[in-house]
Amino acid sequence: MGTPLERLLDHYEQRYPAASGEFVIGCVGQDVPVELVTAAGALPVRLAGRPGMDVTPGETYLGRGVDPSALSVLTRLLTGEYGRLDRLLVSRDCEASLRLFYAVRELRRLEPGLGLPETHLVDVLHLPHWTTTRYVGSRFAELVAVLERWTGTRLTAPRIASAIMLHDARRDLWRAVSALRRDLRLTGVQALAVFGAVLPVTEHNRLLRALLRSDLDVHTGRRIFLTGSSHDNPEVYRSLEELGSVVVGEDHDWGDLLATRLVGEPTLAALVERYQYNGPTAARASIAARAAHTAQAAADCGAELVLSYVRRNDDAPPWDFPAQKEALRPHGIPAVMFDRQDYGSIHLAEVFVG
């Protein structure tokens, strides 16, 4: 059976295809309310790209000027690498995700033989206005109807409440996992896998609790905090940690940012506000908000260095970096940016670790 950590790592490595016998809904972007997917009795599987693969099929439909992670996701959809996906939800969390949605929708219409799943766009806006709350609430009500049609399950208030509580419990457990990493009892690679393991939320929570009770090794190395582009795979983390560092935190939505905001009250209205105000990510928040969040999070992690990793064709993070660097000065934490990096790799021309 293995230790809880070994089992979570295995669930992460074997994310695709998902477990058989369940209605599987692929999810693109962190604005997809996975609570509603769970409430519908389906398994939400967040789709990641695969660095190093030939993305020519994706480029055929999206072009080359798109974030390469989105090209990889579309390519994997076209080649069937994800295994069974009954449906697909795409959030408008960034321009690349939106373009991927339109490409999948049009390909289903024009080339049905490709077998792409039926898809639906989850359009969440993040302005702090009551009119935005009403808009997002309408989109969530629309999604409820879509999920009911897809799964044949009625999303009653009790079902939604139960799913919200399960996912909030997982966010609390993720926070405890982050504390383990700050204590160097997990590496960054391990933490990213523990966050991203794909299994039903009830089983995920059980394994997370078992992990928190485990005896874990203590690691050593320079404490690095990652900002900039998100990381849907551990390759950059692995490169840094193989050189003697430990990634003790990050501010992207495949890692610590998953657990930053709870829903709280188990209602659809509270769920709407959780996603409206979730963040701050580079693509959705102000420069000032990003800088303040990064500086405080890095200080809380005891980071010795903040590294802004920016993927090719990801245009938002470089605008944040000057303000982030300035906000880190009072904490005495230096910052460095690696811009225009290839997807899944970091070109360490200067060895700053060790």
Rank of each mutant, 00 (worst) to 15 (best):
P57M: 06
G58K: 12
G58I: 12
G58A: 09
E59W: 02
E59Y: 02
E59C: 05
T60E: 15
T60M: 12
T60I: 02
T60A: 15
Y61W: 14
L62A: 06
G63Y: 07
G65K: 14
G65H: 15
V66K: 03
V66Q: 02
D67M: 06
D67L: 07
D67W: 11
S69R: 14
S69V: 10
A70W: 04
L71E: 09
S72H: 04
V73D: 07
L74A: 05
T75P: 08
T75D: 02
T75N: 08
R76T: 06
R76D: 06
L77M: 05
L77F: 11
G80I: 11
G80E: 03
E81C: 01
Y82Q: 03
Y82A: 05
G83M: 01
R84K: 15
R84Q: 14
L85I: 10
L85H: 07
D86Y: 13
D86T: 10
L89I: 06
L89E: 09
S91L: 07
R92C: 09
D93N: 11
D93Q: 14
D93Y: 14
D93G: 12
C94L: 02
E95P: 03
E95Q: 13
A96V: 01
A96T: 09
S97M: 07
R99Y: 11
R99A: 08
F101H: 13
Y102W: 14
A103I: 06
A103D: 04
A103N: 03
V104D: 02
R105N: 11
E106T: 07
E106I: 10
E106A: 10
L107C: 03
R108Q: 14
R108F: 08
R108E: 05
R109K: 15
L110W: 12
L110Y: 10
L110I: 12
L114V: 01
L114T: 00
G115E: 06
G115N: 09
L116N: 03
L116C: 01
E118W: 01
T119W: 02
L121M: 15
L121D: 09
L121Y: 09
V122G: 01
V122D: 00
D123H: 14
D123M: 08
V124R: 06
V124P: 05
V124Q: 06
V124C: 01
H126M: 00
L127A: 14
L127C: 05
H129Q: 13
W130K: 11
W130Y: 11
W130H: 12
T131K: 13
T131G: 03
T132V: 04
V136G: 02
V136S: 02
G137R: 14
G137T: 11
R139D: 05
F140D: 00
F140Y: 08
A141P: 00
A141T: 12
E142I: 02
E142P: 01
L143K: 06
L143E: 05
L143I: 05
V144E: 04
V144H: 06
A145F: 00
A145Q: 14
V146L: 07
V146I: 11
L147D: 05
L147W: 08
